[in-house]
Simulated scan of single mutants.
Amino acid sequence: MKTAFVTGASSGFGRAICRTLIAKGYRVLGGARRLDKLQALETELGVNFIPLALDVTDPVSLGTAMEQIADAKLQIDLLVNNAGLALGVDKA
C-alpha cells in the first residue's frame, strides 16, 4: 500500500484530497494544527487515515512530526503540500 502525506488535511482542499486518496487505496498521513478535526476525519475514513498534529510554521512541530513518521517506519510515496494561511484573498 502506498502512503501519502497531506499537510493542511483538516479542512478544505486538504480534507478533500485525503478522502480522494483513501478512496484510491492510499494510506494517508494527515497533518494539521486542529487535532480534533483530524480525529473526526479519522473516524470518517478509518484505519488508513493517520492523524498527525502539525504546524508547518513551527520548526519544533515539524521536527516532532518527522520523528513520528520515522518511528512508524512509514515511507512517503506522495507528498501534498497543502497547508497555508490563505493570505491575500480578501474581498476586492
Rank of each mutant, 00 (worst) to 15 (best):
G31Y: 06
N48G: 05
R33E: 07
A40R: 13
M1P: 08
A92S: 09
D55N: 15
P51S: 11
A23M: 10
L87W: 11
G46N: 11
I22Q: 01
I17H: 03
L45W: 09
A9V: 00
F5C: 13
V47R: 13
G63E: 13
F5G: 02
I69G: 01
M1V: 12
Y26E: 08
L79G: 03
L54V: 00
A9S: 14
G84Y: 07
I50W: 10
T20C: 08
R27K: 15
M1C: 03
G30I: 04
L45I: 09
D55I: 05
V80T: 04
E42W: 03
R34C: 06
T64C: 02
A83T: 06
R27T: 14
R34F: 06
M66Q: 13
L79M: 14
E44R: 08
L21Y: 07
D90S: 12
G88A: 05
P59Q: 14
G25D: 11
L62M: 14
V60W: 01
G14V: 08
L78N: 04
L62I: 15
L45K: 12
L52R: 00
G30T: 03
V56D: 08
D71V: 06
A9R: 00
E67V: 11
D36L: 05
E44V: 12
Q75H: 12
T64H: 12
G88Y: 03
A32K: 13
I69L: 03
R27I: 10
S61I: 09
I22K: 02
F5D: 02
S11E: 09
V80E: 01
T43K: 14
K91N: 10
L38A: 10
N81P: 07
R15S: 04
E67Q: 15
L52Y: 02
G14L: 03
E44S: 08
F5H: 01
F13L: 15
F13S: 01
L78V: 14
A86M: 15
M1R: 11
T43V: 13
A92Y: 04
V28R: 08
L45F: 09
I22W: 06
L87Y: 13
Y26R: 10
C18N: 08
G46C: 04
R15Y: 11
L41H: 05
A65Q: 05
G14F: 05
A53G: 06
K73R: 15
L52V: 08
G63T: 13
A65G: 07
G14E: 04
V56Y: 04
